[in-house]
Design a protein around this nucleic acid. Structure first.
Length: 665
RNA sequence: GCGGGUGUAGUUCAAUGGUAGAACGGCAGUUUUCCAAACUGCUCACGAGGGUUCGAUUCCCUUCACCCGCUCCA
């Protein structure tokens, strides 16, 4: 079993993090607090490096992204607009199939016949086994036995067993082997014991109950589910079923994932505020201000790094999911595809092979931008030592996507705790999601704040005027449909269809005037998860055996030099020789303004190397007697030792700084 | 949130109804000319609270934290 080994790996990482000062439990002296972690001296350096590299890559190294640092507590209206208050705050019951939530106290009573199922097992194997016998060179007699049992018994699994029992003793080797296979594979067959219940309204086809149940079990990972123990029960005015999906609701739970506090000295309802559950919304709320002051034009982005808070039901896996965490988010605003088409005649599509060489083009639509950002982000991870092979990708399915999102690609890292699928492959867990969020966010803030969030685009206005009428009509209609679709889905209870149509018409009419609401691509990364990924990725053990046969295992943290908390260790070969110590301290002072270095004179030289290996210091510099001129040609040179292979070379002190800088930047 | 498991130095582990021991680490010193050398000394723990008991780290209860599974989350 690989399971314990993986736990062991995590245990080793957690204990190293504590032992060497990367991560501590928050409030440890008081017994800790669930879901909160502190960064120790080395963890703080590591995290700072990561955030700085991200900030640099996203803002300073680009012309088209501006930075922002917003407050953690914001107007509660922001969270109403974003939908977080509605979905995060009340006692809710969730439909296990559609994941739609309803307020527990507002479930509509329904009457009908409830169809209960106690669970399901996979029918995939049943089909495969059936096909196996029917397609292979089995005798007609054997096939006939199977056909007969299948016809006789309702449960196809039972039928297979019955057939296999009869054919087990067959002289035909293929058939006998098949029978043994049946027993073995059915014993391993995947099963779900979750019960499922569906309320069938009067006059509806019972098949819709079974269809819903099969869908539910498929989602739970049972392929081609065979339903178990169907039973029915008459229901009068039951409030346990979802009014749209008719599926039995899960128990009521508080979905108040936002931390609540009070602004002002009096704890009154008026003063309620929330700690932000994501950093993104501040970017949307400040979109106009940034646009005006940064002199940017769409397409452009706003980047932010900062803390976010979620009252997670179950924080797990060390710092992977905690209640206070840090995000690095970019909101990259782009023109809607209709606008691109109006200006450029068509929307460019980009193949994956082109991405690596292509710079962003003015005629890119949302798909190209989405691909571009996925690629950019992967390159960022590669640049800090996470090889492509350690990453995974997940394209969210339509069912997983938020209703406003058009696509979302998750970048995953294969953590030691990541689960294996049936084939033994590790998909990984999410480091970052890159979502194409349409114009949902800005639209919501426009509606809730009453302030226009659209932009004006000269190029669009000029291009629109030159378009033939039918092209204008075509684009107008598509833009109108998108707007109407959004407005309908997000309608407030008092909004009429007529109002919605009128608003969508206004929005689409804006195109001719050069106005539109930008769409957004959102690469959103978790800092703490990334730190854990870097630590897990860097962790390696080396076992050395000396001449006496005594073997010793040492830990080497193979951080990329860019993220390593300490860039260089600086040692005098011996501490009882004042000239060596003095020279070593000079070297420390030389490097200190440029990078984080660590001076160490305690213990043997080997011990000091080992200590640096364990915290992932990529280079060590040793001042020895040659530095002092014992061999005149080596005067003012030092030993430079590499962490990953112990290799050593001689370097002039005068070249040391630039040599190191070239490798840590 | 439910179920199971675990809490002893910084780490990994012992022992015990009569107040805790090792290894490694850390610190100081002697020594040491390149990969955790050796020697000496020192430092550091029964997660918290309550109960039973003459006495609890040990038994019981509560609580907190961590790990695993489900759930949740993305």
């Amino acid at each position: 079993m690989a399971e314990p080994k993986e736990n062991l790996q995590m245990e080793k990482i957690v204990s190293l993090c504590k032992r060497r000062g990367f991560v501590f439990q928050s409030s440890e002296i008081y017994g800790g607090i669930n879901g909160f972690w502190d960064y120790g001296p080395l963890g703080a350096e590591l995290k700072r490096n990561v955030k700085e590299l991200w900030w640099n890559a996203m803002t300073r190294q680009r012309d088209d992204v501006a930075g922002l640092e917003a407050t953690i507590i914001m107007s509660p209206k922001i969270w109403e607009a974003s939908g977080h208050v509605a979905t995060f705050a009340d006692l809710m019951r969730e439909c296990p199939l559609t994941k739609k939530r309803v307020r527990a106290d507002q479930v509509e009573p329904l009457s009908g016949v409830a169809y209960h199922f106690s669970g399901a097992k996979s029918g995939q194997i049943v089909n495969e086994l059936n096909d196996q016998l029917m397609n292979e060179g089995a005798s007609a007699a054997a096939k006939a036995v199977l056909v007969e049992t299948m016809a006789r018994l309702k449960d196809s699994e039972e039928a297979l067993v019955a057939a296999a029992t009869m054919l087990e003793a067959s002289n035909d080797k293929v058939v006998a082997q098949w029978a043994r296979n049946v027993f073995k594979q059915l014993a391993d067959n995947k099963k779900s014991n979750h019960s499922f219940s569906y309320l069938l309204l009067q006059g509806k086809n019972p098949e819709s109950a079974r269809k819903a149940a099969r869908e539910f079990y498929s989602q739970a990972g049972i392929e081609m589910p065979l339903l178990l123990d169907e039973s029915t029960e008459k229901m009068e005015n039951s409030t346990d079923y979802h009014p749209d999906s008719f599926v039995h609701l899960a128990e009521p739970r508080p979905f108040n994932l936002m931390f609540k506090t009070y602004v002002g000295p009096v704890e009154s309802e008026d003063g309620i505020a929330y700690l932000r559950p994501e950093t993104a919304q501040a970017i949307f709320a400040q979109f106009k201000n940034v646009l005006e002051t940064s002199r940017q034009k769409v397409p452009f982005g706003i980047a932010q790094v900062g803390k976010a808070f979620r009252n997670e039901v179950t924080p797990r896996n060390f710092i992977f999911r905690s209640r206070e965490f840090e995000q690095m988010e970019l909101e990259f605003f782009i023109k809607p595809d209709e606008v691109i088409e109006a200006i450029h005649g068509s929307v460019a599509s980009v193949s994956d092979s082109q991405l690596s060489t292509l710079n962003p083009q003015p005629n890119w639509g949302w798909r190209a931008w989405h691909q571009y950002w996925v690629e950019e982000r992967v390159r960022f991870y590669e640049g800090i030592g996470l090889d492509r092979s350690t990453l995974g990708f997940h394209q969210q399915t339509p069912a997983e996507l938020a209703h406003y999102a058009r696509a979302c690609t998750d970048i995953l890292f294969k953590f030691p705790f990541s689960k294996k699928d049936e084939n033994g492959n590790v998909a990984g867990d999410e480091l970052e999601g890159i979502a194409a969020r349409s114009d949902f966010d800005l639209s919501q803030h426009q509606r809730f704040s009453g302030k226009p969030m659209g932009v004006f685009d000269d190029e669009l206005r000029a291009a629109w005027a030159k378009l033939p009428k039918e092209k204008q009509d075509d684009l107008w209609k598509r833009y109108y449909d998108n707007r109407k679709n959004y407005l309908t889905k997000c309608a407030k209870p008092d909004e009429t269809a007529e109002q919605i149509s009128r608003q969508a018409t206004d929005d689409a009419n804006g195109l001719a005037k050069g106005q539109y609401i930008p769409h957004v691509i959102e690469p959103s990364a978790g800092v703490d998860r990334l730190i854990l990924a870097l630590i897990a990725n860097a962790y390696s053990e080396e076992t050395k055996t000396d001449e006496k046969g005594k073997s010793e295992t040492t830990v080497v943290m193979k951080f990329h030099p860019r993220v390593a908390p300490v860039k260089a260790g600086i040692f005098p070969l011996l501490k009882n020789k004042p000239e060596l110590v003095k020279k070593a301290q000079e070297v420390r002072e030389l490097l200190r303004p440029w990078m984080n270095v660590f001076y160490d004179e305690a213990g043997s030289i080997g011990r000091r190397y080992a200590r640096q290996d364990e915290i992932g210091t990529p280079f060590c510099v040793t001042i020895d007697f040659d530095t002092l001129g014992e061999k005149p040609e080596l005067l003012d040179t030092v030993t430079l030792r590499y962490r990953d292979d112990g290799r050593q070379e001689r370097l002039k002190i005068s070249e040391l700084r630039d040599w190191l800088l070239a490798r840590i930047r």
